[in-house]
């Protein structure tokens, strides 16, 4: 097992104070502390080469889990073992095989070109010249930023900066890559480029990816397996498609009748199935089995001009899931 997380719990001590000057004075002399449980009893095992998405609303504990995996935080209870290492000990041999990209933080030097930061990483990770040049050329071409290498980082667009961050993080060819909101604030083209890149890197180097994202599309396109967190608790660990089916088993059928078709027969189906007809197009949103039954009945009597099955929008499905996850799992 490449990653083994057992009964992991992380609590933070936080102080509370009421708003305003009075609250500030009161808190200065008498600070009230409370314990906030960011993660509760998480257990998960991940194989090498898997791409696992972590889903959850704000404050669910996604970033805390990532930080525990890279060793930025010390667990309150439980254990994280990655490739035989305890991340918290931050052994250089472990860190040489890990990369983390945090969408809201950057590791590049702001006032100088990204190429200088890459060179610094080359020395920090002790990358040989030939391997460095080969990896850099490969990453730069894949992410299409060759002409931006010598531009000061602060002059780059958000998308270009994120691509440079990813390059800086992958120069040493890590076997574990942790991406925390990698597409946050990026335009559609940059988002898709990054998703494409993750799939490529994973298949070429068999690297393990752990990805958190608010965009369900990121997870849908990059990860087969997901871990869902809710208020610090693990509520689902399994295939993304199974989760979607569990949340919303319905699919949509769009059936377009040929011109001049007599639609009288349709009335007989009206009580059995729920559907709508507009301009010779029948639309039905039903569980898969019912949808198939309806389709076979339609095909007995009609030959369609066109027809299609559609999955329901995933974003919408996930939104209703997070409103009350206990209703679905």
């Amino acid at each position: 097992m490449y990653i083994k997380i057992s009964n992991l719990t992380k609590s933070f001590k936080m102080f509370k104070r009421s708003a305003g000057l009075k609250g500030a004075f009161k808190s200065f002399f008498n600070r009230q502390y409370t314990n906030f449980h960011a993660l509760k009893n998480i257990s998960i095992e991940i194989n090498k080469g898997e791409i696992v998405g972590i889903l959850g609303e704000n404050g669910a504990g996604k970033t805390t889990l990532i930080k525990l995996m890279v060793g930025l935080l010390h667990p309150t209870n439980g254990e994280v073992i990655i490739d035989g290492y305890n991340p918290w000990k931050r052994k250089h041999d472990y860190l040489k095989n890990v990369a983390i990209v945090m969408g809201q933080k950057n590791q590049l030097w702001w006032d100088i070109p990204a190429s200088e930061s890459f060179l610094l990483n080359k020395h920090i990770y002790q990358i040989e010249d030939s391997k460095y040049n080969e990896t850099l050329n490969e990453l730069v071409d894949l992410l299409d930023v060759r002409d931006k290498l010598d531009v000061q980082v602060r002059r780059l667009s958000l998308g270009e900066r994120m691509k440079m961050e990813i390059i800086a993080s992958l120069l040493h060819r890590p076997s574990l890559v942790l991406l925390d909101e990698p597409t946050l604030g990026l335009d559609v083209i940059s988002q898709s480029k990054i998703r494409e890149f993750v799939r490529y890197y994973n298949s070429k180097y068999n690297a393990t990816f752990i990805i958190t994202s608010h965009y369900t599309k990121d997870i849908q396109e990059m990860c087969q397996r997901v871990l869902v967190l809710n208020n610090g608790s693990q509520i689902y660990d399994g295939l993304f498609n199974d989760l979607i089916k569990a949340i919303n088993p319905e699919r949509r059928l769009v059936f377009e009748f040929s011109e001049g078709t007599d639609l009288k027969y349709i009335d007989s189906l009206d009580g059995k199935f729920e559907f709508q007809i507009h301009d010779s197009i029948l639309t039905a949103q039903l569980p898969e089995s019912q949808l198939r039954e309806l389709l076979s009945k339609l095909l007995e009597k009609f030959s369609p001009q066109s027809m299609s099955f559609e999955d329901l929008p995933v974003e919408e499905t996930m939104r209703s899931f997070f409103q009350s996850p206990e209703d679905y799992l």
Binding site: K67, V70, G71, L72, R90, H92, D93, L95, K96, V98, A99, I100, M102, K105, N106, Q107, N121, I124, Y125
Partner: peptide, 12 residues
Amino acid sequence: TGDINKFLIRPI
């Protein structure tokens, strides 16, 4: 601010 993270995640 948490900027120290970028040093803690590297072998340095």
